[in-house]
Structures are given as C-alpha cells and as structure tokens.
C-alpha cells in the first residue's frame, strides 16, 4: 500500500494514513496532519511525566515464563522483549512529578499489546505494596488490550488479586490515580482501570470492554465514530477528565498537590 517504509524515519499515521517523518511527530508524538496521539512506550511516557532523573525503577525480578506450553508464546515473548527492551508489559518505579513523590506504574502497549499476565499482576501488586510502605500515592497509566490469552486463567486471576491489593491501598487512605491511555480494554478496563479515586483519560484514547471488531462480529451494528473514545466516555459520565498529552504532567502534579501526601516510610 505504502511506498514509504512504515518503520524507520517515516511512519504511516495509524489514524489518517498519511506519511509522517519522525521529526514531524515532535516531542509529544502527535500526527501533524490529524492530531492523532501516537502510542507511547512506557519509557517515553515516564520521561514525559516525571522530573528529570527522578524515576527509580522498582526491582522487577518477575518475568514471564511459559508454563502452559502455549504454541509460539516463548517466541512471542522473546520478540516483545527484544523489540521493546523491556522484560514485561509494565514498568514500575518511584518518581517525582513537579517535586511531588509518587509510585508510578506504566503499561506498554508495544509489549504484547500491554496484556495483563502473571508478571504484570505481580509487578502492579508490588508497586501498590510499595505505595503503602512508603505512604505514597499510586499512579497507574494503563495501555492494554486486556488479559493475555497465552497465560489463560492465570492471567484472569490477576484481576481480582490486583483489586484485593487496591482495597488495602484504599484502607491506607492513599490515593490511586488511573490514567487511561490508548488502548484500555478487556480485563484491564474491567478491573483496576476505573478503580482510581481519580480516573482520567488521555485525549484520543480508546477505552472499553469488548472491542468494536468483536461487537460487530456479534451484531450488525453501525458504531458511531466516537465509539469508546475518551471524549464520549467523558460525556457519558465515566471519567473525571480528558487530558491532552502535553498537559498530563501538570495535571497529575495538580492532583498530587491536591492530595498533599508527602510520603515517609511506614514503620511497625
């Protein structure tokens, strides 16, 4: 279709199909023609959100292994690791956002579509435990197609286990802020994504449970152009706000400031 390569210096915009040179995407990775926000990697997201060199990754020993002998899974994992330089679909750490401390967990849709599996579950639970340990707010940036099929029911139980841990975070009166980015679907949408004390979406994000393709396979309906868009969810009362990417950092800083939690280790 394209006479330009879709990787390298030129990329095809997934929204409008025009060819965009890597410099044209700019700092915030936006299509200059249609204003589509390109999906960020976890590391790009973190560098946009946190104070310079304030991000300290939490120890993340948990990596995926294949226990079920699902065909091609080990190869897919290896490929995802090689392409992203990550060990799993989420990166967690302590960070400062405009000089305010928090625990930050960022999912990466480039790693097997950010799917929730046993390792992601363990890391997210660990991040929340650290938030309780250090008495800090937890910010979770979601980007996920849902549960990872290849880990079967082991991926599914991440949903209730993460919610059980977040119940402890709530008991500790520590804020959970969820930032829903493109895409936030399936098991992530139906578990912790909307469990934030403050729930916001990045402009342009697709958010929902069953995707448009699945719905249209089930019933012959014409879906509106803004179906499952951040803007329509805001209009329908599902979100506190929709934030443009360049404002996300200052928005989160404002939320953190409004809670005014400075942290400090929990003893005893």
């Amino acid at each position: 279709m394209s006479h330009y390569p879709s990787t390298g210096t030129w990329q095809t915009c997934p929204a409008c199909g025009r060819h965009v040179h890597q410099r044209q995407w700019g700092t915030y990775h936006q299509c200059p023609f249609c204003h589509y926000w390109q999906r960020l990697t976890a590391m790009q997201r973190i560098s946009q959100l946190v104070d310079e060199s304030s991000f300290t990754p939490l120890a993340m020993p948990e990596q995926s292994v294949d226990q079920l002998d699902f065909p091609d899974y080990p190869a897919k994992l290896a490929r995802a690791q090689q392409q992203t330089g990550l060990t799993e679909a989420i990166v967690t750490g302590t960070a400062m956002i405009e000089a305010q401390p928090c625990i930050l967990a960022v999912m990466d849709s480039h790693f097997m579509m950010g799917t929730l599996n046993t390792a992601v579950t363990r890391r997210l639970i660990h991040a929340s435990e650290q938030a309780r340990e250090q008495q800090l707010p937890l910010i979770v940036v979601t980007a996920s197609g849902g549960a990872r099929m290849q880990e079967g029911i082991y991926a599914l139980v991440g949903m209730n286990l993460i919610l059980a841990e977040f119940a402890r975070l709530a008991t500790a009166q520590l804020p959970l802020i969820t930032v829903l980015t493109d895409p936030t679907m399936g098991g992530v949408s139906a578990s912790f994504a909307f469990k934030g004390d403050v729930v916001v979406a990045e402009a342009g994000a697709k958010i929902g449970f069953a995707g448009a393709r699945v719905i249209q396979q089930t019933m012959p309906v014409q879906l509106p152009a803004d179906f499952q868009s951040a803007a329509s969810l805001l209009a329908n009362g599902m979100l506190d706000d929709v934030i443009e990417r360049p404002q996300l950092r200052s928005y989160l800083a404002r939320v953190l400031a409004s809670y005014g939690i400075q942290g400090g280790h929990q003893h005893g």
Binding site: L163, A190, A193, A210, V214, M219, Q228, M238
Partner: peptide, 17 residues
C-alpha cells in the same frame, strides 16, 4: 461478555470491576 454498544455505553467494565 455481552458484546454490544449498550453494555459499553452503560459501563460494562465498571460494573464487572
């Protein structure tokens, strides 16, 4: 899941969560 526009509109994700 009930794969339908109505269920999405009324917050299937939140109801399940």
């Amino acid at each position: 899941a009930d794969a339908s526009p109505q269920s999405e509109r009324y917050g299937q994700s939140q109801a399940i969560a």
